[in-house]
């Protein structure tokens, strides 16, 4: 069983705690930390660097914070599969505008949107990037 570190924003504390209990039951050593707001990337990176080899990180945060922590974790030596995303509904999806690269926050993947930066009409797809923590929005002509 791997050592598990759960990072959670205050608003998802309940979900984080639930995950902690589940993981404990299956025999893992689990640590839960509440994130400060705003999140300081350098501080996070420093904290992650000292975690035991084999630590798995589980995130209960919104999209933008998730992206920031994932990048900090990669810098600290966590690989792609060492970082997991907790199953929570954050209320928004991040849509990557394929025309201007702006990430738009939207409530649904079903409806088309207008990019707030370039005005392009976009159709969200299920093409997901964990690097950007966003779904690709294709242009509608």
């Amino acid at each position: 069983m791997r050592h598990i570190l759960i990072l959670t924003e205050v608003r998802f504390k309940k979900d984080g705690l639930k995950e902690k209990e589940l993981r404990k039951e299956s025999g893992s050593s689990v640590e839960l930390k509440l994130l400060d707001s705003p999140v300081d990337r350098k501080k996070i990176e420093q904290m992650l660097k000292d975690k035991p080899l084999g630590t798995m990180l589980i995130l209960y945060t919104g999209g933008a914070t998730r992206k920031l922590i994932r990048h900090a974790a990669n810098s600290a030596g966590f690989s792609h599969e060492d970082v997991r995303i907790g199953k929570i509904y954050t209320g928004t999806y991040r849509i990557f505008c394929s025309q201007c690269h702006r990430i738009n926050g939207k409530a649904s993947l079903e409806k088309s949107i207008i990019c707030i930066s370039c005005g392009q009409h976009l159709e969200p797809s299920d093409h997901y990037s964990s690097f950007h923590d966003a779904y690709l929005g294709y242009p509608i002509l």
Binding site: L48, K49, D50, K51, P52, L53, G54, T55, A76, G77, F78, D82
Partner: peptide, 13 residues
């Protein structure tokens, strides 16, 4: 001693 050297390793190793 070798076993000891293996212990307490951190992420990124």
């Amino acid at each position: 001693k070798l076993k000891k050297a293996l212990q307490n390793r951190t992420m990124g190793t």
